[in-house]
Design a protein around this nucleic acid. Structure first.
Lengths: 325, 325
DNA sequence: CTGAAAGCGCTAACAA
DNA sequence: TTGTTAGCGCTTTCAG
């Protein structure tokens, strides 16, 4: 059996309170006893139980992050940025991918009971749950999802870059645009699509359509391309993320369509593969999104800020060959 | 304040033991009391505290995974595969990226105190720590790292595919090969390099050199290319992972070197970008590596197997244009 | 079928 | 400076 604080106390001939004090470098301990205790700790290889400590302190020194699923680099990068900062702040990191599981809300509640605060991405959990957690006092930060009254949030700028992207595509002569992706899956898309439509509305003869897809991955992109090939090809596919765009690209390529000659294709995120595919896209600071969320959450947990903060990180249009260099 | 089991007990006019029984669907409770308790639980919105429960049960219902750092898709995919299976098994998931931190061993010990078992990847932690944890009874699974006496392990086949890769490159006429990557960073490389050298040794006039790099990422790959350009170019760069290879590729491309005409370049992992870059590589089942580790760990935790298991997952050579189609 | 009581391992008032 | 003691919230014998 692993030694407990009582074992150490007995071994050093002191009380458990003294052991606790020594473990916490508490001031009021004579050097002599401190040494005795330290020796006992050494000899028994004592490490205080996190569980006992957490129960007594009523804090976990851990925090969590919830994200929808993990197809592709975007979430991975965000999570890793989060882990990195949270670890620097001395907190353990719990992760949960809801992956459309019906039990997701229950899993989130369970996780809420293991940490001092959590970051929630996308449409992983019903708002009502988040609001309940928030009123219950659980520190929360929303990441890349719609804001909620009184809760901190972080997101990347969708509007500005979506406007640049739209302008770019239209400047290239595209008139009929197809927006690919489902805002219900990626809440960010709402803002982006709105921006594109706003820009398009300012230009005569422009038409914008929308294709909702079940998943934002390469296979789906390929399918979108195939379907479009049977109908009339639009002038541009504006996709919700790079994987979708990459899929459209290969679907089109397989059919011998000339990109960007006949059609333009754009993505979003700027994942590594986008560079090698020459995809025009918008760069999001994925790592920083996670890192910023971790820092905000820490402020909420420790500081007890009065007002919630809402951070928007900049994004950047990256023009490459596939939408016309 | 959140209600405790005592609140529920008082509310239902029973003892806490009875509440506990009801919460656990324990048999010996009359239907009447069960209902009373259930109602009280409802009304107070009682959820048992994980902490209290864990302390009493002496189990966390959580497990962890440690990995070196997160540059690139490989670790991300593995972690996600792990999370997915672990969550299905009803366990919470803790992650820790050691990232060369000097405090890594301490962080791992701390994490060990929050979970029922953990998966350890690569050279994140000194073997001595792992052995100590193991003797202490902590369930462990090693992932893509050298085995340790009595501890389960999972890895992808390095030898077979490295042989195929070497044969492929040599068949393409390469005589002077450069192996890029540091086995101290990625333990898998030892086996791969050994396999390549074995195959090369069987062919006359072949020379194999090695370049150790500090990190296996794109920037490093570019640098390797630049350095090689100043000296004599080898016939083939056999890289430790895709990112490195992709970096070499762009470094070479920037200098106008014809790949695969003048030089061959190969990677390892088959990440998404590799497909779009046309990189010859070896496909590793990244997700499955994580998933398998999660399952093994579960067996160790729950079953108490007598003998450790060592699983090797198959890999596959994927030939694309950059090493000669 | 139900309750009392003893922990699980620690922290932190309060005394001394 | 040190020790005593009462929890933190739960599970689980052991009686009844």
């Amino acid at each position: 059996m692993r030694p407990t604080i009582r074992d150490v106390a007995r071994h050093a001939g002191v009380s458990i309170a003294t052991v606790s004090r020594v473990m916490h470098q508490h001031a009021n301990v004579s050097e002599a006893t401190r040494d005795r205790v330290a020796r006992a700790v050494e000899e028994l290889e004592f490490t205080p139980s996190r569980l006992g400590r957490s129960l007594a302190e009523r804090r976990h020194a851990a925090n969590a992050i919830v994200f929808p699923d993990l197809s592709g680099p975007y979430y991975a990068e965000v999570v890793l940025g989060y882990e990195s900062v949270a670890a620097d702040l001395g907190r353990s990191v719990l992760i949960l991918s809801t992956h459309g599981r019906p039990a997701a809300p229950a899993m989130v509640e369970e996780m809420a009971d293991r940490c001092d605060g959590m970051v929630v991405m996308g449409r992983t959990v019903p708002d009502s749950l988040l609001e309940r957690l928030h009123t219950r006092g659980m520190p929360l930060v929303l990441l890349a999802r719609p804001q909620l009254e009184g809760i901190d949030s972080v997101k990347a700028d969708n509007t500005g870059s979506a406007e640049s992207l739209a302008a770019h595509v239209l400047d290239r002569g595209a008139r009929r645009l197809v927006l690919v992706g489902d805002p219900d899956l990626a809440p960010d898309l709402d803002e982006r699509w709105a921006a594109v439509e706003r820009v398009a509305a300012g230009r005569a003869g422009t038409r914008v359509e929308t294709i909702a897809v079940p998943v934002l991955d390469e296979a789906t992109g390929q399918e979108v391309a195939r379907t479009a090939l049977d109908d009339a090809l639009p002038d541009a596919f504006v996709c919700g993320n790079d994987e979708l765009a990459l899929g459209v690209l290969s679907g089109l390529g397989a059919a011998g369509v000339d990109v960007p000659g006949q059609v333009l294709v754009t993505g979003w995120d700027d994942v590594m593969a986008a560079r090698y595919a020459g995809l025009t896209t918008v760069r999001q600071p994925m790592r920083e999104l996670g890192g910023t969320a971790a820092r905000l959450l820490d402020e909420v947990i420790t500081g007890g800020r009065a007002e919630p903060r809402h951070v928007v990180l900049p994004t950047e249009l990256v023009v490459r060959t596939t939408s016309g260099a």
